[in-house]
Design a protein around this nucleic acid. Structure first.
Lengths: 127, 127
DNA sequence: GCTTGCCTTGACGTCGGTGGGAAGGTCTAG
DNA sequence: CTAGACCTTCCCACCGACGTCAAGGCAAGC
């Protein structure tokens, strides 16, 4: 499988695949003319990478999952390192949610105050 | 007031103040030697900018609030444009929260599955 | 041989809010 | 006179996951 074929099969770009390779996520052999040649199993790897990226994982977070797949496990989630990353990510997302809720509440109260002061101060003024 | 004084009073850097100016948020006169000279009212403006930046607003989002302050309102929130931005931001944050909650729940179920399959498949294997 | 379409590496642009530093002018105190 | 503490403009670096050329090699059909 060449890089263009893998890219299309995985629904991404050749640029992204080369990027993953330079960051140690993808592996490719080389044909006589220097083209990258991919094993069929790499399609799974690319799908795992993109799924995790889509959730908000960074490249380094994804490495344990890829390693887990390469170790022969049907899912990248089951290895201890992957589980550790999952736990950490859940905590991060929880913290992010807390921050955003706090911001939202602050914005809401600010909006309420703004509307109230408009009603009281603008009823007879140009506002 | 010179830029260093304003920076210290507002708890930020001169670098940031120049950045705000190039993006149309801050106004400064110039003294004979070319130094920026700030009106006392600019301190309020800088505080408004930094408060909104801290909440996650972008430079463009902040412009209506600054304009509102300059129009003489005691708060930057009360003008129609500011209120519109507030509403939009609240919606954005709400959407962000929804996405993160979804991600968190997906991660949680993935974690549960991973732990379960480890328990069943690793009890007698090297895992 | 020529075109078309793959592939290669390499390097720069993106977005936003700065940090850092260069190279230089200015003001004040000792 | 000089030191140092301001100020000025300008430009590079950063983070992350790529997009987008550029310049060129290789394969296949006509």
């Amino acid at each position: 499988m060449l890089i263009g074929e893998l890219a299309e099969a995985a629904g991404t770009s050749t640029r992204a695949l080369r990027y993953y390779e330079t960051h140690g996520l993808l592996r490719a052999g080389r044909s006589a003319n220097g083209y990258r040649v991919y094993d069929d199993a790499e399609l799974r790897v690319v799908r795992e990478i993109r799924a995790l990226l889509g959730i908000g994982f960074g490249i380094d977070d994804i490495k344990p999952f890829v390693a887990c797949l390469r170790a022969g496990h049907p899912s990248g989630d089951v290895c201890p390192d992957s589980v550790a990353v999952l736990r950490r990510k859940i905590a991060e997302v929880d913290a992010g949610i807390d921050r955003m809720v706090e911001v939202r509440d602050r914005l809401r109260s600010q909006l309420t105050i703004a509307i109230e002061s408009r009603e009281t101060s603008c009823s007879s003024k140009t506002c």
